[in-house]
């Protein structure tokens, strides 16, 4: 059975890739398996300048999940182009560059900087960041703001742009339709859900940033519901993510309407997870009566 699937800018050998921020730039995981086995890689968010991120503690375990508030620590887009992308260029591996910013201009500048390299195949526009000019409201929660940042990044980008939707939006379908009309080539969803946990001994929020993003199996039903709804409302492909641990989870995302999936938090419990999912997926597809990936995509809607 072929697991291959073609999406804008991405010829995927299989529909499995690591999610942004959970896999850095791949180096650490390359000690566990050959990165060329992956469908693609979503690299850690790039901002215009270097960012040092939040103070620690930055992560907390929660039931079947975790909270993180890394704070976009990264060396800045130019350093990523110079020091990280050449390493990934050594693999047979489509690279999706996640970009972040505090202002629309910053997003534009990161997208512009990425024109310098031919080592990326698509951009993932992370609109879950707080907009400093609009009182810190996430770009991704207001359809008009999401439209504007997508339109302006599309103007700068030389590769297809996938917009990463935030589950914190009141109406994620409205945001999805807004970014589609702004020219998005695809969607990735979902980013983390805002959450908090309190340290009983210290009597204060455990994370130093107080709030963090919830990820892992705990958010899977939310992701499935959102993908199911968005799939019906748009005509661009979706890369799904949120709590994937097993090949059955992968199939559920495909059925809901995702054309490919990303795996984040599960890499922390099992560094081999992506490879194991790729190896086991054909058996699961067959077991549930599918002859190809294409057949499974959106099959819960028929």
């Amino acid at each position: 059975m072929t697991l291959a699937i073609n999406l804008p800018g991405l010829q995927l050998k299989n529909p499995i890739m690591p999610a942004s921020g959970c896999f850095s730039f791949g180096r650490e995981y390359s000690h566990f398996y050959d990165l060329s086995e992956l469908g693609a890689i979503m690299i850690k968010a790039a901002t215009e300048e270097k960012r040092l991120g939040n103070s620690t503690p930055r992560v907390a375990e929660t039931k079947s999940g975790m909270l993180n508030a890394i704070g976009l620590q990264n060396p800045g887009v130019l350093k990523i182009i110079e020091n990280e992308l050449p390493f990934l260029g050594g693999y047979d591996l489509p690279v999706i560059a996640n970009i972040a910013g505090s202002t629309v201009e910053e997003y534009e500048n990161v997208a512009k900087a990425l024109r310098q390299t031919d080592l990326i195949h698509a951009i993932e526009l992370n609109i879950s960041c707080p907009n400093v000019k609009e009182g810190g409201v996430q770009f991704g929660t207001v359809p008009e703001v999401a439209y504007e940042v997508t339109r302006r990044v599309k103007e700068q980008a030389s590769v297809p742009v996938y917009v990463k939707l935030s589950p914190n939006a009141a109406d994620i379908v409205a945001v999805a339709q807004a970014v589609e009309s702004a020219g998005a080539d695809g969607l990735t969803m979902i980013n983390t859900l805002t959450g908090m946990t309190i340290d009983l001994h210290k009597r204060r929020p455990l994370l130093s940033n107080k709030v963090g993003g919830l990820s892992g199996p705990a958010i899977k039903p939310v992701a499935i519901r959102m993908i199911y709804d968005v799939y019906k409302a748009v005509n661009i492909p979706i890369i799904g993510m949120g709590g994937i641990m097993t090949t059955e989870d992968v199939l559920e995302f495909l059925m809901a309407g995702a054309s490919a999936v990303a795996v984040g938090t599960a890499n922390f419990q099992n560094p081999m997870i992506c490879k194991e999912l790729i190896d086991d997926l054909p058996t699961t597809l067959k077991q549930y009566g599918f002859e190809s990936i294409e057949e499974a995509i959106g099959s819960a809607h028929r």
Binding site: F23, E28, Y29, T56, P57, R58, V59, A60, I70, F268
Partner: peptide, 12 residues
């Protein structure tokens, strides 16, 4: 410190 990946990939 509290850890995520334990191998240098998550910046926790």
């Amino acid at each position: 410190e509290r850890m995520g990946c334990g191998i240098g990939a998550c910046y926790a």
